[in-house]
Design a protein around this nucleic acid. Structure first.
Lengths: 232, 232
DNA sequence: AATATACGGTGTATTTTTTACACTAAGTGA
DNA sequence: TCACTTAGTGTAAAAAATACACCGTATATT
């Protein structure tokens, strides 16, 4: 093959790993493909980057088309550019992860034509994915496992008001390990990035827990403190 | 503008931040551009990704063309895709950093035509760079500052055999802070990733220090231990 | 009203890690 | 042999991480 710049017939796309937390499980939003190749396979949501948009904007658009949500926490984490990753030609993809608050609603009606439907799947039983999306998912999951220990991204997955137990559960699910309740609370409160509310949990059949919310102001003051829940 | 996939007229490139350590200074390899736009400006070495190569291969090629070196430690760290980052059209670039052993040699004869020459510049007095390369450099430098504290990448910049003082100097230069000699040695040796050699430093006009080398075998045993020189 | 149930919420002692700190030893060059 | 320069070393104090168990309180049940 000749040495030509990737100019014609080359395409790039952005793919998104969209995480949600529901009923104690960490979930990913997958689409069922409506087009060849890999028609009817599950895949990460993704689409081409248009000429007039940045890659970040493309990622935001993909998320919006699927969920109707804007202003969501998203982060680029890796670019996949193997020559044969796409069976129909050269495609380079920039991968993002995003975290959204589920708040119970689970049905999504994607407005894109490349997907026939979108479903939330627990990360524990992820099906085989189209293209190299399984690899992309693994890399992104590793990334957030890592990142959650030193940056307050977990809050993005919880309702605005949450209990410390809910927060701990989320950490436990992502890190896939049990944490000690007293130590977790001590540490989390010591970071001083949570605001204790006057409200309490409702609708539980036992003693209601205090609600907290993430305090962005306080956080930015201490931006350098790394949260650490890695070793316990 | 229409919403078209970035198919025609779109280009991507790989840009490399190539670090070297010499005479106690951290340096970057810059090229002086030989072509418009930004002719005669300094820039990060970079080139288009060809159709028949992965992005990683493109990055390796760029490094090879400039330095004649292969098998160098390189890592992708971010992809820059703003619409107007290149004055002549849409270019997306995947950025890498690389670390090479300088061993004194400083003259490089680039064999590419986009560069008239390549020079080592201290990171402390980096000139203005073409395109958004200053931003790319900053992001990459942050990345290695971060990474050096938990992965043994610093060794890539040193000669195969080095003294603990040389290693400490390198950490100090990258982290831009003084470290305590005793604590540095204690910690570094405790990781048990260095092999003490029988040899000593030569050609110094004072007591010669012991030489060490990085022991990859030992390192992979304890791959999970994060080196940490972040807080002192 | 009494009781059972389930989670909420709290403190302390121990171990480990990090930090701060200063002098003698050894080799070189004059 | 003396002056100079860097090599090489240990300990004590502070901070952070860990391990660990019980009572309190709201709700549901009888």
């Amino acid at each position: 093959m000749e040495n030509l710049p990737l100019r014609f017939e080359s395409i790039f796309s952005a793919d998104c790993i969209i995480f949600g937390f529901d009923e104690g499980e960490l979930k990913v939003l997958l689409i069922e493909r409506n087009e060849e190749p890999f028609k009817e396979w599950f895949a990460l949501p993704g689409n081409f980057v248009y000429e007039n948009e940045s890659i970040d904007e493309a990622a935001e658009r993909i998320l919006y088309e699927l969920t109707g949500l804007k202003g969501i926490y998203m982060q680029q984490f890796y670019t996949f550019g193997e020559v044969n990753r796409h069976p129909q030609g050269r495609v380079i993809t920039v991968a993002y992860f995003a975290m959204i608050r589920l708040n119970g609603q689970k049905e999504l009606k994607p407005v894109t034509n490349y997907a026939r439907k979108a479903v939330w799947v627990s990360v524990k039983d992820l099906p085989q994915l189209a293209f190299d999306h399984t690899e992309i998912f693994k890399k992104g999951f590793e990334k957030i496992k890592n990142k959650i220990s030193y940056q307050p991204i977990a809050f993005e997955l919880l309702p605005e008001k949450f209990t410390l137990t809910q927060l701990q559960n989320l950490y436990e699910v992502i890190l896939n390990k049990k944490l000690d309740k007293r130590n977790f609370r001590k540490k989390m409160l010591a970071y001083d990035i949570l605001k204790e509310l006057d409200e309490k949990q409702k609708g539980v059949s036992y003693r209601a827990a205090k609600l907290y919310k993430f305090d962005k102001r306080k956080y930015s003051k201490y931006f350098h403190n790394e949260l650490s829940f890695g070793k316990e």
